[in-house]
Design a protein around this nucleic acid. Structure first.
Lengths: 186, 186
DNA sequence: GGTAACATGTAAGCGGTTACATGATTAG
DNA sequence: CTAATCATGTAACCGCTTACATGTTACC
């Protein structure tokens, strides 16, 4: 069957409350996209594949002349989901960050310029924290109220708390650099 | 010239102390790979490109019959590096994590199974922290002693502290779930 | 009447990985 | 003598993104 994480993302979004490809797209943008992205271009073919496999069933449900297709999990789909969730083994994590790459090479800069690199990481984290507070967490709370799903909120809180931690970490480093400028021991 | 982050990774590793494609490969494995990966297959063509651009110069320096080519930054290379490091604008960050994806969908599991998902994230972070303590941080300290570069160590500490934070975060959630099992209010 | 949101796609390309290939030197 | 390390590649593939395409309905 060859199910990829993208497959489970689609299955999972259907389980979480989304019904159409479009709702999956909107749903991921407001939630899980920080930990796994999927583009609309992938979603629709994936929905067809999953239907071929019998893991979901779809029915056409147009709004006026505007077509729309709603899907839901089958028993097989729910089972496949459970198996994947419980499967031990590799939990692939990939983190690619141009800001940390620049920090890594900051020795090529003057001390105050290097300090700016840390401040840039902090500022980005501040923007991200604000985004979590304004959009991601409220959306997750709605998912909790509307569909009784608790873990989207927990995951959103992880994201929020992570960025908060980054802010604290950077502030500490900035304070240290203020106290003992790089290159000037003491 | 079309320089990608991979280009700057190569430039930066040369600045940090690496001399050959092989040393860049080994160096990244012990350091920056957690924030930006590059495979050996990319390194060698990139070195040639950068030499064509005049950002690095190479000379053959075989060991016996075993060939080897050593590179160093040119003044232009050092300048390009600085410009990139100082450039404002997009600091692309991409985080893709199957474990958090599973956590996000953990509502499809029983409470104790969901709790296991959090524990799995914690255990992975514990393994990562151990790896940072045993390998990454010591390697970064060597880079500091041998080449006088401070920021690889700072970046390594960021990685270490991050995984430590993840561990704490997960432990708190695990304790909360012990106190108030999901689905059994109070 | 225009803009935003709804809804679903096609085609092309590319950045990056996997698998494979080769050979020399050093350490145990 | 064998394994690990040093050192540098080629070929094929593929998941994913970008750019583009199309039409409808709801809202102000």
């Amino acid at each position: 069957m060859d199910l990829t994480p993208a497959s489970y993302l689609v299955l999972g979004m259907l389980h979480t409350g989304a019904r159409s490809g479009y709702e999956i797209k909107r749903g991921t943008e407001l939630s899980v996209r920080f930990f796994w992205t999927i583009s609309p271009v992938q979603i629709y073919p994936e929905l067809k594949r999953l239907e071929d496999f019998g893991l979901i069933v779809g029915r056409d449900d147009p709004r006026g002349a505007r077509k729309r297709r709603l899907y839901e999990l089958t028993e097989e789909g729910r089972l496949a989901m459970r198996e994947w969730l419980l499967a031990p083994g590799e939990l692939a994590m990939e983190w690619r960050d141009a800001a940390l790459l620049k920090l890594f090479f900051a020795d090529a800069l003057d001390p105050d310029e290097a300090r700016e690199r840390i401040a840039a990481i902090r500022q980005r984290a501040e923007r991200m924290r604000a985004e979590f507070e304004a959009e991601i967490c409220p959306a997750a709370e709605k998912t909790r109220e509307r569909f009784g799903r608790d873990f989207p909120l927990l995951t959103a809180q992880f994201g929020h708390d992570f960025h908060e931690w980054v802010i604290e970490w950077c502030l500490e480093r900035e304070r240290e650099l203020d106290a003992v400028p790089v290159g000037k021991a003491r």
